[in-house]
Design a protein around this nucleic acid. Structure first.
Lengths: 342, 342
DNA sequence: CTGTTAGCGCCTTCAT
DNA sequence: ATGAAGGCGCTAACAG
């Protein structure tokens, strides 16, 4: 690969002239510019990304980390990434996806920095080593979801409006006459579970329903969502006959419930109303009956995240907090309580 | 950010010693190593990725390019990416996603190289400027799908076995007694359409069916897959009453057909057998009736692609061609011809 | 085992 | 509008 030197020599000009032809940082006479570009094309020259980044201390790359070997992107991640990429495109950034080893934090050595200008933190956990680390190294970042408590005031973040959404879902079922509503929450370790739980509880409270109307389960990540949904239907629902409605963490859990209900001869929505937080895993329309959802907007989340990070890169003390609406999408999986078969 | 110099000074050793503590390229005495690591930790030092890459001429980054502003990753891309990432993780590579402007090839200037060791080319078109360019700059790459003719012999590639798959799907329907089978092919501009079409034709021919048994449509990308499926059912199928079975380009097209059939009062599989190439857009199980598919294996494709690229990086003249099987997944959307309602 | 000296390829003053 | 020299932070080759 030819370097800036080769071009300079061949064109009979200095390195800095060539440099400036490409960076356009200072005026170059037309004739010189043309000459340089011509030679560059002839030689197949292109500025070296690394060398340039090293010199200007900027990479125009945004990092997205996922931990562990078994973690895979799901459809929600997909739409999120699409949102991020859209903004990357508009702002001439690239996206670097890095899969971190689980124990990487312990490898003090042999670990280098990432070649990124900033990072997007997906799925933050309550005590997240990535965040701690990026803080230490003063790497600009934005958190997706609720940041751990100690960082709430000092880091920008973008989150779904989980509290109001859970409240809304609960209200919706309450309005249909349901009282004992099972809330299948996200795994307890995930910060999102806290907000949703509070939204659910708030709705009950506001409606004047006390503690024994409260039914909360947490998804454990040892089984798949579908298995978990099936488990819930088979165990929790059959143990507690009062429960007439259910809110699930995601649409696959709902699918598990659907399947189990079929096995149990319990029909939706006549015998059970169900509403799911949808991460886009399923075509809700295609379930029978079609699934009423609280639809997460991954694309918008991605767009907002990237925008926030860009702001942060310009202005170190930008600690905005952006919220993206989760919308209720009414379909056919919920029915009024009084239709319930006795 | 502290540099290697700061650490060297503070630890009272030379740069190269510090360098080697981190790179482990030459033995360092335990005491010196500990001292250096201690200081490094104290100073929050980390080797600079860019500087290192510049020096060793290797980035440990793989590039994945998508062209244009409106292109979005779909579920198939998602599983593909998951496959690639898995191998990245195992081999300590990162994945850089770059969204290229449509006219980027014309910007001779202001374009720098990518900070990657190699590239993965998704959705190659018959005349693909990305390939031409990477060829010029001698960037190692692997093509996903069928490479354009002139590159077939000189570039490594990994592809689905489209010909045999289309043949198998057709055979399957023929065995069920269907004779007039509509083949809803991929868009004509996509190289994949050629292979599949030939597989379809080959199956018919082998079965002794002449040209007038051949029904081929090409998806046009102006409408969505679902709309296209609906269009097919409403127009092509109703025009030609002989057609009793259909093979669709992807599962969303099948969904469009499902919906249209419902409107038309035509029931599946009694009145129409359908089988779809599935890119994972839908949960085939959840359609009514569940959809028989030729399932693309995106994850494997991703794994193989990355492996091939790694080989290529080691050995410049590796031009293997890998094929990933598309599997027939029998469900309930196909029925024997003699069950057809008269 | 450790230090010294040159680069890697570009950008950035400071000159002219 | 252009050149010359030094530096970005690290690795590599050579020395000892």
């Amino acid at each position: 690969m030819p370097t800036i030197n080769d071009v300079a020599k061949a064109a009979g000009v200095s390195k800095s002239t060539v440099s400036n032809v490409f960076s356009q940082k200072r005026p170059i006479s037309e004739e010189v510019k043309e000459k340089v570009l011509e030679i560059a094309k002839e030689l197949n020259y292109r500025p070296n990304y690394l060398a340039r980044s090293l010199a200007i201390k900027q990479t125009k790359i945004i990092g997205l980390n996922m931990i562990g070997e078994k973690v895979k992107f799901n459809p929600f991640h997909l739409s999120f990434i699409n949102g991020v990429l859209q903004q990357c495109y508009l702002n001439d950034y690239r996206l670097l996806i890095n899969t971190l080893s689980n124990d990487y934090k312990e490898q003090v050595m042999n670990i280098s920095s990432d070649p990124t200008d900033g990072e997007i933190i997906l799925n933050p956990s309550i005590k997240d080593s990535r965040i701690e680390e990026f803080m230490e190294y003063q790497i600009p970042m934005v958190i997706i979801g609720r940041p751990p408590k100690q960082y709430e005031e000092i880091l920008p973040s973008v989150d779904n409006d989980n509290f109001p959404a859970a409240q809304k879902a609960t209200d919706y079922l309450l309005a249909l006459g349901h009282r004992h509503i099972l809330f299948c929450n996200a795994p307890k370790v995930r910060t999102v579970s806290i907000d949703r739980e509070q939204g659910y509880q708030f709705a009950l409270k506001q409606f004047g329903l006390g503690g024994h109307y409260q039914h909360i389960e947490y998804r454990d990540e040892t089984r798949t969502s579908i298995e978990y949904g099936s488990y819930i239907a088979h165990n929790v629902l059959s143990q507690n006959k009062e429960i007439s409605a259910i809110i699930t963490d995601n649409d696959k859990v709902a699918l598990g419930v659907y399947r189990a209900c079929k096995e149990l001869g319990r029909s939706i929505p006549e015998d059970l109303s169900i509403i799911a937080f949808s991460d886009g895993s399923m075509y809700s329309d295609e379930l029978q009956p079609s699934l009423t959802t609280m639809t997460l907007n991954g694309v918008t989340l991605g767009i907002e995240a990237m925008n926030l990070l860009l702001e942060r890169l310009e202005n170190t003390d930008c600690i905005k907090r952006v919220t993206v609406k989760i919308e209720l999408h009414e379909r056919q999986s919920c029915a009024p309580m009084d239709k319930l078969q006795k």
